[in-house]
Amino acid sequence: MESFIELLTQMNPFNLVQVLFWGLAGAISFYFSIGNARVWTSISIGFFLIFLAQAYQLNPLAESYPILEAYHYIIGTVAIMTISHGFLEYYVFCRTFEISGNKIVVYLSTLAVLIASAVFLYINPTPSPNTIRNISMIENSIWVFLSVMNLELIRKIYSVIKDSDISKGFIAFGIVFVCIFIWKGSYLYLQIFQWDKDWQNIIALMTDEVSNIDEYMGRVQFSQEVSRYAGLLSGVSVGATFTYMYKLLK
């Protein structure tokens, strides 16, 4: 018990709150997918996977398990891809009114991708801190790119269904993706200019490189704060959006 309390004290309280919100959002989205069409299954699973990816950060020893650390970034990547697949299917439905496919296929496909990713990590050399940072950068890049794409899909979906009950829910999803774009985009900005914490750790221990972080501390701190609060807002907005959608479709 004492060791558990000690573990909790080592946790970042901000991360803890953020993960709690993501947990709530994941639970609501997962509940929402039950009894609903397949497009919602993809979107809900995606948001649930974000919760899993974020939850790993609560582990104070996260950085001690490089394979797990790399894997949680992969889960994050799979999450946004699944969400985007859902919105793409919704957009196709709005244009063609075609509802095809099976929920089980979505569950199994997501599981298959996660297993394949795990196998990929297992059969390759243990990821170095640099490799893990690369994977994180890829994840953030995909998130930023797909957030923009999803915003465009949401705009198009809204223009088709704006006089239906659910249309305002898509405005809420738009807000979610603006938050996610800022959250992931601000962190990607730090990574691109090598002002992120991971890079600082790498150069402190492993290379002779010198960082220019001190020259831009203001924008670094601003980006870090933006990333933290946008991440928190993303979790809150996802939870609120699914609650709102549930109310709209009740």
Partner: peptide, 12 residues
């Protein structure tokens, strides 16, 4: 009904 589930509330 299946298509409407994606757009309108259960009551409607």
């Amino acid at each position: 009904e299946r298509a409407a589930k994606l757009l309108v509330s259960g009551t409607n």
